[in-house]
Design a protein around this nucleic acid. Structure first.
Length: 435
RNA sequence: GUGGCCGUAGCUCAGCCCGGUUAGAGCGCCAGGUUGUGGCCCUGGAGGUCGGGGGUUCAAGUCCCCUCGGUCACCCCA
């Protein structure tokens, strides 16, 4: 745009390039999540990014996510499709389509898309990790899912996360509750903000989420779900709370907690990072969605899931100084002063032997190549000049700490490296250190 | 969709209020100091249509208008 005579492309609004080392940090985060949930029997599912628009319409026809933030468009055959704004709907659609044995315990990671104005911690393309379980009606499962998220936050080092817990009751409870809230809000129309009135018209429960000071008094005097909760729903909720207490997962009851999507029933929860500003402190959430599979054309099936926002979790990590980006790590950097063939051959041999190895292309002075070696994060530099070639040797230099170096026969190089520092020769787990 | 703030070197920014010769700094990058040795230090160098367009003026990075982009917030949400 800034050069009319030359086309210069930029990433689209709200879309970002994730460059190293941030990319490595994200991968490390997903690895931690995968380790936590796979240890509990969850297996990865990878639904497509694009679905029939109807899949998403079913999950929230009165929500902003669906009504105004969806990337939907007409496909080449005229059908209406959309980029997924979240993953639960696609996962449940996959469940209905494939009828896997229940319980179906899956986890996922990936990008979602919402067409909204970007700001800190919210982008048009954003990543989530999450789990879903279909086919189990047992409060202990709710406890398991919540406890896994809790364990994950602990594993990456976050300490300021608070669990907010609520129940929306059974289907009929929710309907009754919605009416009770609607009646209450209608009775106080005059005290509500214009935005709250607009929300009231299409989804009364969502007004409870209003953070506007003007609405606070009306919201706080609104009926709570406990007033209309049926006995089975109350029992379910009691057992969830009991389970969390036994497992030592602290929670705060949040009777006004109403989550963004329409499909939630019974248990709902949200994780708030208190190290972040309120505008983006929700770092995860989820709940039960018994009935969603049926809405998508499948058999009546209980379901529960959670989704955690990767971008916001990393913001919280920044705020708390944990889970920093990893340092560059490399076993060997080859410095070649004899034309490049030695670097070509040695890096190839070293990699085949299981070492990570890099080099400089295009030559350069020894000094500049050593600078590159330093920046690469390499443990060792292997130097090859005329002297070494003549002697059939290479120079092995320690780049950490001192400047020890020694000549070794070229055909003994991998053996020398293996003996010198075994721990450096293993493909290790991501090295993630606090910044 | 609405509002605030900001666009000057690869990055972070100064200069703009009070228009005036070749637009600066730090970091990064390249090279040299050390004709085969990184990190620290010193010296030098490359790198900028001052987001774009229009206007005012003898003169615009600086003033005015428009526009594009970024960012933060509202709405809503992860």
């Amino acid at each position: 745009m800034s050069r009319p005579d030359r086309t210069e492309f930029r990433s689209l609004t709200g879309m970002r390039d994730v460059l190293w080392p941030e990319s490595a940090r994200r991968r490390a985060l997903v690895d931690v999540f995968a380790a936590v949930v796979e240890a509990a029997g969850y297996r990865e599912v990878r639904p497509p990014l694009l679905e029939d628009l109807g899949v998403f319409l079913r999950v929230g026809e009165t929500t902003d996510v669906v009504t105004k933030e969806m990337y939907d468009f007409e496909d080449k055959d005229g059908s209406r499709v959309a980029l997924r704004p979240e993953l639960t709907a696609g996962v449940v659609r996959a469940f209905v389509q494939h009828s896997p044995p229940v319980p179906w315990k899956v986890w996922y990671e990936g990008a979602n898309f919402r067409h909204e104005r970007p700001q800190k911690g919210r982008y048009r393309s954003f990543e989530q990790v999450g789990v879903e379980v279909l086919g189990v009606d047992d409060p202990d499962l709710d406890v398991e899912v919540i406890a896994l998220a809790w364990r994950f936050y602990e594993a990456i080092g976050l300490r300021s996360v608070r669990l907010l817990l609520n129940t929306l009751g059974e289907h009929d409870d929710r309907a009754r509750y919605t009416e009770a809230v609607r009646d209450h809000l209608e009775a106080h129309r005059g005290d509500l903000s214009d935005q709250a009135l607009a929300t009231l018209a299409r989804n009364p429960l969502r007004v409870l989420d209003s953070k506007r000071p003007q609405d606070r008094a009306v919201v706080e005097s609104a009926p709570v779900i406990a007033d209309v909760l049926s006995a089975p729903a109350a029992e379910h909720f009691a057992r969830v709370r009991e389970g969390l207490e036994v497992l030592g997962v602290p929670y705060t009851e949040a009777p006004r907690l109403v989550r963004g999507l329409d499909y939630y029933r019974r248990t709902t929860f949200e994780f708030a990072a208190e190290s972040l500003d309120a505008a983006q402190n929700a770092v995860g959430g989820g709940g039960r969605y018994d009935g969603l599979a049926e809405d998508l054309g499948g058999p009546p099936t209980d379901g529960i899931g959670l989704a955690l926002g990767v971008d916001r979790i990393l913001l919280a990590c920044d705020a708390e100084g944990v889970f920093g980006a990893p340092e560059a790590v490399l076993d060997v950097y080859v410095v070649d002063l004899v034309g490049g063939a030695a670097a070509r051959d040695l890096t190839h041999e070293l990699r085949a032997a299981g070492f990570s190895a890099d080099r400089r292309f295009g030559g350069g002075s020894m000094k500049s190549q050593m600078k590159s070696a330093d920046r690469s994060g390499a443990r060792w530099a292997v130097l090859v000049g005329d002297d070494e070639v003549a002697a059939g040797e290479v120079t092995l230099r320690d780049l950490r700490g001192g400047a020890d170096q020694r000549r070794v026969p070229r055909d003994r190089l991998t053996a020398e490296l293996a003996g010198s520092q075994p721990s450096e020769t293993q493909p290790s787990e991501p090295e993630v250190e606090p910044t």
